[in-house]
Design a protein around this nucleic acid. Structure first.
Lengths: 197, 197
DNA sequence: GCTATTATATGACCATCATCATACACAGCA
DNA sequence: TGCTGTGTATGATGATGGTCATATAATAGC
């Protein structure tokens, strides 16, 4: 190797990060190869030394997003008792900060309606990531003593994703805040996570 | 007028319908002016006699989708007692048929993550449509005696949209069916819509 | 310092797309 | 049966975007 041994790997990672952010913010179809390269400080030509196609970049970027997302979920729950951990995750997920951060945050909410239109590889990666997130939530619900934890986890994630997405789509700030709040209250009650006053 | 008096209006409506279907199936950014015209049996050139721009078409098509969607919601609830009506709507919304119909069905689920990326006019139309759908649901919940009907309607719609979207994204058919079912059960229980055995 | 090799840049190709100018076709009327 | 004006088609333009061939720049080992 003539360049630094890790040179290309570093560039690769930078590209993945840049793509993951851009795709969440702009959507897979509005993101261009040239734009991603520029964001990483490069020009468009070298792209195909890193990825075989744009589709492959999209797939890989989705994987990257879910890694961040799972890490975040684990971090919220780690070193907390189950109820407090789940409460913390819900509060993070249904927060104004999460709603307003277009280029980071949960890939499920950012890409959900783009997904059925992507090619198979990307869809598989996404589905895999979503399944894993569901498992993390189910595990937490199980610790809380819910018998049908898997079913409940599906329902919980559905409302999280739906509420965050609806809040992002709502143009009236007050309504948007309300949407987040209503689902937060509803979920808190439903899973008996009322903070011990 | 040399052509039939309604000729242009009819074309206009055909374009709106075609656009509404294509946009739900392909997404606003992947739909092309030429494709929509072709779907209506025309060629691309005449487009600008009907719409000032593609953006305007997208906005108008979103309005069209919500008209269909609200009509559907009303139809499910009409001539039924509140509980049965709401149950019927939930069963329609969280059904395999709705999940598998890419080009028709609720615009909220089809476009939710494209929305933050559209221009203002389209976002306003969407938000307006979503608000109205929430109102329809809230009204139904109010009839059922729920005190905080507005908040509950937000939460209900969030789970509906989230679950349908997640089911569409899931590549494993059995998991996809399960996602729909879990939210249907969860909502049915939550709003006490158990069918009278 | 020279050279071999690897990472990135330049520049081009072709396809797609929104937009528009202009030409044509249709139907009601004289 | 021509005339007229409205609705649609033809075709062009400029922009953008994915892809690739080829050229250049960077550095580790001799």
């Amino acid at each position: 190797m003539r360049y630094d041994a890790e040179h290309k790997q570093n560039t690769h990672k930078k590209l993945l990060k840049a793509a993951a952010d851009a795709i969440r913010a702009e959507g897979p179809h509005r993101v261009g190869v040239a734009g991603v390269m520029a964001k990483a400080g490069l020009t468009h030509g070298g792209f195909y030394a890193h990825f075989a196609s744009k589709d492959e970049l999209v797939s890989a970027a989705i994987g990257q997003m879910f890694e961040e997302s799972h890490a975040r979920a684990m971090r919220e729950m780690l070193d907390r008792d189950p109820a407090e951990g789940l409460r913390a995750y819900i509060r993070f997920y249904l927060s104004r900060a999460h709603r307003d951060a277009k280029d980071v945050g949960c890939p499920v909410a950012s890409l959900i309606s783009d997904l059925p239109r992507l090619e198979t590889a990307a869809r598989e990666r996404f589905a895999e990531g979503a399944r894993q997130l569901t498992l993390i939530l189910a595990e937490q619900l199980r610790k809380l003593g819910h018998a049908d934890a898997d079913a409940q986890a599906d329902s919980l994630l559905a409302e999280l994703v739906g509420a965050l997405s609806m809040a992002r789509a709502e143009t009236d700030p007050k309504r948007s805040d309300a949407i987040i709040l209503h689902s937060r209250q509803s979920l808190t009650r439903r899973f008996q996570l009322e903070s011990p006053a």
